[in-house]
Design a binder for these strands. Structure first.
Lengths: 350, 350
DNA sequence: GAGGGTTTTGCACACGTGTGCAGTATACAG
DNA sequence: CTGTATACTGCACACGTGTGCAAAACCCTC
């Protein structure tokens, strides 16, 4: 029932020539007479021939295929990045293998092995976890790799990265709050994306220190590391906020927009007015940030560009062009969730 | 520089046997003596051998590869569906090719051709547009296909679908509003997803009719078809609502949650209280629905299951098992955006 | 030690495509 | 008519893997 698709051999038989001639004719090789070339091309058209990319991949050493590792596709941040990647890939006739890691190191290794089996030309990883073993294996397999938002130290020739500047983004967020007059500023982070969390937290600490404010350990809460799906970020934010309230913070800087949304929900439950009683800053500028009430002040990451540049970088590596890891800048987007500290004290508990 | 990965031939040379023996040994064939089998397996391990899936695909007629067509990855609805698909695929050692159509029929055709070139075992499409030519080509190429939320008429043997019941979902939404006491209920739809929009609209019309209410054409607005990216759904909802206000509707049923979010934003701009002055019902139950204010009453689609079942169905087709298109049921989720029609009249304009 | 049975291995081909090299046909010059 | 340059085409191999069939090696029995 599953009759196989027609091959150049079939066309060769029909045209009364050898398969070599057909192969060359379809590639418009000057070795084949114009007349024969056109006849074969038309015949191929009529017979509905589609070249077998698998065979071509086996023959040549390129598969025109790239493996993509994403932590969670439900994360709105990843969605935009993937779109940027896909657009560039499509334009260069490269197909994407999609795999979700759910921030599970074991699964990440499996995915790498699968990609290697499939002989992908390269790998793009936007999976935030990045265990050491995982990157080590990537380097060992000599698969050209571009990491997104992971700031690889360029260990190997084939390991590159494109990042948005987490440290500076955090700085902008905190300085915005300082400029509004806040002095007690909390930080809500995550435990399962250590690299970026560490950098944003460092930006937060340093900026406060530079302003002569000693960071109180009570102001900082990190979500436990068990949950790795994105939806839980909101729950985490919601669960983490109460612990922060007794400390008297008038503003909170969140690891990302979803945490911030959780904070907003928690405030709503408790009748805490935002931003009158508590200012909230997110990170990423995902779509949701514009839709919640109040709309979120946040740090905008150039997600589409992040993806597009990563893909372009990978193509450059494959073509042997010189490439250099890049760090993009983020921009503060001021919306409604931040204001000068109000007179109303935070009402914790009831 | 790009030394090729080692092959079974390399192992054969190292072990002093033929490549056939290696191939059989690695497959634990009983034809090979246990001693040789173990020796070769260990050798393969030591040499870091990874089977070449491309060659295997060429030899066998299966590639263990599935093509995935999604309208837009940024659409939170698609994200969950993809996750369901990916989970089942991963469990069955099947890799996914991801392509985004942006609801562009021309692009959809290109994608189909690419998938065919790559000899994917099957295709899953969650691209809502579905031009006729596109499905026709799929059937012509004899690629086993499962459509999600497109209710294919099972034209060919290989064309199946898994859907959530749009008509019934719309019925539930409207009956909920009727039960609350609403009589004038608007509908905000989209122009670029005709199939599902038509079905939801039909459910809306029929339910109102069954309740003895004649649908006023003024109550219905469909977003123009130019924009196909998801983010614009919110803008469309925002832009469409004003036209609806003068008609005196006390509730509006939206094609999806994003449209509904747009409606909420428009209401906020104009000082219209939701749900006191206007009840809003969405569709899909994406995460955002829980995060906006007021949280959205909506129709929950089993997105994860939709994807998982689609993938499982495709695997069944490939294994020759009998399969049947399925229609899943949706559930009404009541939240804060709906209430009995208030006394306060809608204040349109200023 | 020859014959028969069993176990183990290698040869050769297949999958579909691309390409170096040799071979054939055509044209042209001597 | 022979020799040579030129245009065109086919042979044969390669990519890496899997498999039917035959051949080789081994064991056992008479």
């Amino acid at each position: 029932m599953h009759r196989r698709p027609i091959s150049i051999q079939d066309i060769a038989s029909a045209a009364g020539v050898s398969h070599s001639t057909v192969s060359r004719a379809l590639h418009d090789s000057a070795l084949i007479s114009l007349e024969v070339r056109q006849r074969i091309q038309q015949l191929a058209q009529e017979m509905g021939y589609t070249p077998n990319a698998v065979a071509q991949s086996l023959k040549g050493q390129r598969t025109n295929t790239v493996g993509l590792i994403i932590a969670s596709i439900s994360d709105p941040f990843a969605g935009r990045v993937v779109r940027g990647i896909e657009e560039v890939a499509q334009a260069h006739h490269t197909s994407l293998f999609l795999s979700l890691s759910h921030n599970d190191p074991e699964r990440e290794l499996e995915i790498i092995e699968t990609f290697h089996r499939r002989r992908v030309d390269g790998v793009i990883s936007a999976s935030a976890q990045m265990g050491g073993a995982y990157v080590a294996r990537l380097a060992q397999l000599k698969m050209p790799t571009v990491l997104i938002n992971q700031q690889a130290e360029c260990e190997a020739d084939r390991l590159h990265s494109v990042d948005a500047d987490d440290y500076d983004g955090a700085r902008q967020a905190v300085e915005h709050l300082l400029a509004l007059g806040h002095r007690k500023i909390g930080y809500l982070g995550v435990g399962n994306r250590r690299q970026s969390n560490r950098r944003r937290f460092a930006g937060y600490c340093d900026t406060l220190s530079a302003a002569g404010i000693a960071v109180d350990a009570q102001w900082v809460r990190i979500a436990p590391t068990m949950n790795n799906v994105h939806a839980d970020d909101v729950l985490d934010g919601q669960a983490l906020l109460p612990a922060l309230l007794p400390t008297g913070v008038t503003a909170v800087f969140c690891y990302n927009d979803l945490i911030a949304v959780g904070v907003l929900l928690a405030c709503r439950e408790r009748g805490i007015a935002t931003p009158a009683q508590l200012s909230v800053v997110g990170y990423d500028d995902v779509d949701i940030a514009r839709y919640v009430t109040p709309s979120l002040t946040t740090i905008h990451q150039p997600k589409l560009r992040l993806g597009a540049i990563a893909m372009q970088m990978l193509l450059d590596i494959l073509e042997g062009r010189p490439v250099q890891s890049r760090v993009l800048t983020n921009d503060l987007v001021v919306r409604e969730s931040t204001a000068a500290p109000g007179s109303a004290p935070v009402n914790f508990g009831d």
